[in-house]
């Protein structure tokens, strides 16, 4: 016999209180990264011989800046979700695991902010 209420079972929120959010966000960012990463790779091919001035001019166009910001946000969100699972799978000591997870989450956020700032600085 379960002590859980029907609504708690429907919501699917176990002790982690997370439900399917992790899974859903991983898919959502993956879908976003399909066109964004293809765009990025094609752009890098086109910029293969570009110098500083040419890359700056390219980055400063509104379309590039917006797509690059979207790429940065989706990449670092997706990255920290994936590495979180790697840490949870392989690091078993609770303390070490927690330190790694906090470092990962804060580090990914900081890197994402740094990358976004760099794009905006070139764009404005």
């Amino acid at each position: 016999m379960t002590m859980r209420t029907p609504i708690s079972r429907v919501r699917g929120l176990g002790s982690a209180k997370g439900g399917t959010h992790h899974w859903w966000m991983q898919r959502l960012t993956a879908i976003a990264l399909v066109p964004l990463s293809i765009w990025f790779v094609i752009s890098m091919i086109c910029l293969a011989s570009a110098d500083y001035a040419a890359v700056s001019a390219w980055m400063a166009t509104p379309l590039t800046a917006v797509l690059m910001l979207l790429l940065v946000v989706a990449t670092f969100y997706h990255m920290q979700l994936g590495l979180q699972v790697v840490i949870e799978d392989y690091i078993h000591g609770e303390g070490t695991k927690m330190v790694c997870l906090i470092g990962l989450k804060l580090g990914s956020f900081a890197l994402g902010v740094a990358a976004a700032f760099a794009v905006l600085k070139v764009a404005f």
């Binding site: 940065v72 990449t75 740094a114 990358a115």
Partner: peptide
Amino acid sequence: TGIALAVGALLLVCWLLALASGPAAFA
């Protein structure tokens, strides 16, 4: 490859920060 790409993401940040810092860092 996901872990490798996470390391590659560091390079993307370096590249963007260098671009924002000026020609010398970019070079």
